[in-house]
Simulated scan of single mutants.
Amino acid sequence: MARPLRIQYEGAVYHVTCRGNEKKTIFKDDYDKNIFLESLSDGLKTYTIILYCYVLMDNHFHLLLETPLSNLSEFMRWFNITYTSHYNRRHKRSGHLYQGRFKSILVEKESYLHILSRYIHLNPIRTKQHEMASLPEKKKYLRNYTWSSLLGYKNESQKDIFIDYAKVLEAYGGENREGRKLYWEAISHDLSMGISIKEKVIGGSILGSDTFLRWIRDRFLPEKSREIPAVKRLRKYTTKEEIIEALCKEMGKGFDEIKKEHGIIRQIAMDLLYRVGGLKGTEIGRMMGIDYSTVSQGRKRLREKLKRDKSLAKTIKKIEMDLSF
């Protein structure tokens, strides 16, 4: 199996997850969870890591952290070995505890840190056990879920000493009573309306704006590395801004004008945003002000036209060439 892409730099922020091997439990009881958190706290100090939030589940965990020293892999290697050693000794077992290497998503701090923290804090109610639970029941469960940093975001008296609450709470008015109140209100709104994150992750590796993706691509994904599978997967994504600019230039029309059309140009836009931009049908639909099914149908009609119209294929190829990097 190919190694996952690890883009590391000073001040990088990551959403890190690790699952139990064969989806088995990694915590037998509260004692294991306490040892896990003690080891985590030690590692944060040793490797100068800033932790913004965490959630422990029976068979996996989530961390949202920052690496001032560009040392994510070094920290996670130490941390996972340390906890696995404890678990194996205590439960008289041997072998791997986790399912492969840890997974990490590089996160644009300014745009997504506070939103992603809420997404992670909702994890305890994303189980079959809570699928049919009422909104009040879900709120009560989250308020009382011990193994999450959410408690410290909601109540100052329940803060963990190894969590940096201030940066996330900046977006809600600061680390004060009002900020904590607004943060919990945002969580409650997410419980009711949902929060969309997964579909915004590009190439399974990056969560950020078009500007952030372009910066990462240009700085950390040089042409000489293009044959690495994870890099190829990321480099194929051109930002939607670049796609729209190239399309408008070729067609001699503004994007607002293209969105209002019902013909071939709009179909080309939808197809490029899907294939070259890596956007999902629902995202393209929102951009165009149409239903996602219309996106799928439009791309299907375009494919049929391409079989008969060679000049159309040349036009699309020209736009793709303009977008190549």
Score class of each variant (00 low, 15 high):
residue 99 Q to Y: 13
residue 57 M to E: 05
residue 106 L to R: 12
residue 101 R to H: 11
residue 78 W to L: 03
residue 80 N to Y: 15
residue 94 S to R: 14
residue 85 S to F: 13
residue 84 T to F: 08
residue 73 S to A: 09
residue 79 F to N: 05
residue 56 L to K: 06
residue 60 H to C: 05
residue 76 M to D: 09
residue 101 R to A: 12
residue 74 E to R: 13
residue 60 H to P: 02
residue 67 T to V: 07
residue 64 L to N: 01
residue 82 T to S: 14
residue 111 S to M: 09
residue 58 D to S: 11
residue 69 L to H: 07
residue 101 R to V: 10
residue 108 E to T: 02
residue 84 T to Y: 12
residue 90 R to L: 13
residue 89 R to K: 15
residue 102 F to S: 09
residue 99 Q to G: 12
residue 94 S to Y: 11
residue 107 V to F: 01
residue 77 R to L: 08
residue 67 T to D: 03
residue 57 M to T: 02
residue 89 R to M: 12
residue 79 F to S: 07
residue 80 N to H: 15
residue 60 H to M: 03
residue 83 Y to S: 06
residue 97 L to C: 07
residue 103 K to D: 11
residue 86 H to L: 12
residue 104 S to D: 03
residue 87 Y to M: 01
residue 79 F to Y: 14
residue 90 R to H: 11
residue 86 H to T: 11
residue 102 F to Y: 15
residue 90 R to P: 04
residue 82 T to K: 15
residue 57 M to P: 00
residue 95 G to A: 13
residue 111 S to C: 06
residue 80 N to V: 10
residue 82 T to H: 15
residue 84 T to E: 08
residue 65 L to Y: 01
residue 64 L to S: 00
residue 110 E to C: 05
residue 88 N to I: 11
residue 92 K to C: 07
residue 103 K to C: 02
residue 109 K to N: 11
residue 62 H to V: 02
residue 105 I to T: 09
residue 58 D to M: 07
residue 90 R to G: 09
residue 85 S to V: 10
residue 84 T to V: 14
residue 96 H to W: 14
residue 110 E to R: 13
residue 75 F to Y: 15
residue 75 F to K: 10
residue 105 I to M: 06
residue 103 K to I: 01
residue 111 S to G: 02
residue 110 E to N: 14
residue 78 W to Y: 13
residue 67 T to P: 00
residue 83 Y to W: 14
residue 86 H to D: 09
residue 103 K to M: 04
residue 70 S to V: 05
residue 82 T to Q: 12
residue 101 R to K: 12
residue 99 Q to K: 15
residue 66 E to W: 01
residue 73 S to Y: 03
residue 101 R to L: 12
residue 95 G to H: 10
residue 82 T to E: 12
residue 104 S to R: 05
residue 73 S to R: 08
residue 56 L to G: 02
residue 76 M to P: 07
residue 60 H to I: 05
residue 105 I to G: 01
residue 85 S to C: 10
residue 58 D to C: 04
residue 54 Y to H: 03
residue 65 L to P: 02
residue 69 L to R: 13
residue 66 E to Y: 00
residue 71 N to D: 04
residue 95 G to L: 09
residue 96 H to K: 09
residue 63 L to Y: 15
residue 62 H to L: 03
residue 80 N to P: 04
residue 109 K to R: 15
residue 61 F to K: 04
residue 90 R to V: 14
residue 61 F to I: 02
residue 95 G to T: 14
residue 104 S to Q: 04
